[in-house]
């Protein structure tokens, strides 16, 4: 197998998002709001008045718009980190397959089928199960 170095090209950077200082800075308000969703009372406050809750965390216009549109890729572009965004997704009852479908443009069933197909890539002869 070959190990290609990470390319500098923009498309590749979007495909392999590295949550660095720039994104962490840009996304701070959005991620702070998502971090607050560890508490049930805060999840309920968001659901009761989304606009007011977002305002409380000083979301940027870009972040507020991405949240309003439930646009995960736009949230990532606005500095959202997936570990925190997952807590927002949970409020809407969305799991990681739903997030995957939203980001890839597949249906949830297509996305799940794609996950299953990765098993076909397990190399022939690989030791996948062993118990002494």
């Amino acid at each position: 197998m070959s190990f290609d170095p990470v390319s500098d090209d923009n498309e590749r950077r979007r495909a392999i998002p590295l949550f660095d200082g720039g994104l962490a800075t840009r996304g701070f308000a959005l991620n702070a709001m998502c971090f607050s969703f560890n508490e049930k009372a805060n999840r309920e406050a968001f659901l009761a008045d989304e606009e007011a809750y977002c305002a409380k965390f000083d979301l940027t216009a870009e972040q507020r718009d991405a949240v309003a549109r439930r646009d995960v890729l736009a949230m990532l572009d606005a500095g959202g980190n997936v570990y925190y965004l997952a807590k927002l997704a949970g409020i809407f009852g969305l799991g990681v397959q739903d997030l995957g479908a939203l980001q890839t443009g597949m249906s949830v069933d297509e996305f799940k089928a794609m996950l299953v197909r990765w098993a076909d890539e397990i190399p022939a002869g690989a030791r996948v199960k062993e118990a002494v």
Binding site: R14, I16, P17, A86, L99, Q103, I122, P123
Partner: peptide, 21 residues
């Protein structure tokens, strides 16, 4: 595994086997 971005759902059994082995 990868949760974020347009490559969400990516896995790499070759690399995993390299690590396991």
């Amino acid at each position: 595994h990868q949760l974020d971005g347009p490559r969400a759902g990516f896995m790499n059994p070759d690399y995993d086997m390299f690590c396991l082995d």
